[in-house]
Simulated assay, not measured.
Amino acid sequence: MTVSRALSEFSSESNSGVSTPLTSISSVVSLPTQFPSRVFSPLITHALDLPSLRSKPSSQELLAVLCTYARNQGKNFRGNEESIPAPEGFVDWATRLVGSGLEWIEGEDDRELIWDSASARIAERCGRTAAPSMEREFEVRNLDLSIILYEPSLTADSLGLKTWGSSLLLANRLTDRHQDLIPSSRRRVLELGSGTGLLGIVLGVLGYPVLLTDLGEILPNLRLNMDRNRDRFSRCGYSPDVNIEELNWADVEASAAYQRGDKFETIVISDPIYSSEHPQYLANAVGQFLEYDNPQAQVILQLPLRPKFVDVRSDLWRKLRDIGLKPTRQDHESGWDDFGEEIFFWSIWRPREFIDICIDIDSLP
């Protein structure tokens, strides 16, 4: 059942006095999403108007409020602007709800649903790192359809399960200028660190055969996103040629691509460095898979200019130079991520024997 349909049915049945099975809305109350104009609960402007737990409100009444004030992630990292503002004191009310035994609610499943929904509303208001699992919509320039991506809860060891601003900006750049940026040979493109799949999906829609790669624990979610969007785009006449494989930068030789001896004319990478080890790992992977004897071989790289990563970026530039690459093009642009507005840096690196003029790496940010 779709979110809108579940909301509509629940609203109409509640207003008519007919009891609504909670299972019919269990798939929507705990996920932030975009709600239609007809919501479960009348809008509440003061905390005193929230259902008092002393009055033992019904499951439907509690879930109505929790659904009404679910946070919407919006599009393209500009989330929550379409969400319905919750009244002051809503988080305190939801916290009391989580701590209540809800003894008057019949059915353990119903109580669990209310607790889970209240916990999700609290988490949504504690920043991206505390947010629950979510579906997100991204609009990329010059594409007929938006891209829907599922993101599990974010933890420090699963950063590849989140969509980052660099992938959206690079996707926009490619849809604007891919014929200028990627050779016309239509050779297969390699993406290192594909994450949730935004950039790889866009490359596939643009007509490039693409190999998406990431750590093994990232691949199930990547495949889920690829399959869902492949079906959506195929209904509009697109047939993305995309394959997904495991590739651990710290153990490149274990990958199927290495064992096949794959080489690539174009490698794309977005936001690849989160530790001091990553520059060396990334350079090793690029050095292994780039087709160095091809005059058109290139690495397209986009990353945010995070202030705490100046030394790590400098190390990355040196490591790319050490494997025989030089930067030939660069650009800066402002963009958004879940953590606010940032400046992002874009560059193209090519084998040094095929270029006469390059950019001094000491001038790179």
Rank of each mutant, 00 (worst) to 15 (best):
R5K: 15
S8C: 08
F10H: 11
S14L: 03
S26F: 03
V28D: 11
V29G: 11
S30R: 10
P32C: 08
P32F: 07
T33Q: 12
S37P: 13
S37I: 08
V39E: 15
V39W: 10
F40K: 10
D49P: 05
P51H: 08
S52Q: 08
L63C: 14
C67V: 01
Y69T: 12
R71K: 12
Q73I: 00
F77V: 07
R78L: 04
S83I: 02
I84F: 09
E88N: 08
V91L: 15
V91A: 12
L97I: 07
E108N: 14
S119T: 15
R121W: 05
I122A: 11
E124A: 08
P132F: 06
M134S: 15
M134Y: 07
E139N: 13
R141D: 04
R141M: 00
L143T: 14
D144P: 08
I148W: 10
Y150F: 11
S153T: 02
L154C: 00
D157V: 00
G160I: 00
L161D: 04
K162Q: 11
S166M: 02
L169C: 04
L169S: 03
L169D: 00
L170E: 13
T175P: 14
I182Q: 07
R187T: 03
R187M: 06
R188Y: 04
R188V: 05
L190T: 10
G193T: 01
G193P: 09
S194V: 02
S194F: 02
G197P: 08
G200E: 04
I201K: 07
V202G: 04
L203D: 04
L203T: 08
G204L: 01
G204Q: 07
V205N: 10
Y208S: 02
Y208V: 02
G216I: 00
E217M: 04
P220W: 03
L222M: 10
L222D: 11
M226G: 06
M226P: 06
N229L: 00
R230N: 12
S234C: 08
P240K: 06
N243M: 02
N243G: 14
E245L: 02
E246S: 13
N248I: 00
A250C: 04
E253S: 14
A257D: 07
F264D: 13
F264Y: 13
V268K: 00
I269K: 09
H278G: 13
P279K: 11
Q280N: 13
Y281R: 10
Y281V: 01
L282V: 10
A285I: 00
G287A: 07
G287S: 12
L290E: 14
Y292G: 14
Q296N: 13
A297W: 06
L305W: 12
P307Q: 14
K308C: 08
V312Y: 15
D315I: 00
L316H: 15
L320E: 09
R321G: 14
G324M: 01
G324F: 03
P327N: 07
P327E: 05
P327H: 11
R329P: 02
G335I: 03
D337K: 04
D338F: 09
D338N: 15
F339I: 00
E342N: 14
E342C: 01
I348K: 03
P351R: 03
R352Q: 09
E353S: 04
D356A: 03
C358P: 08
I359L: 05
D360P: 09
D362L: 02
S363L: 07
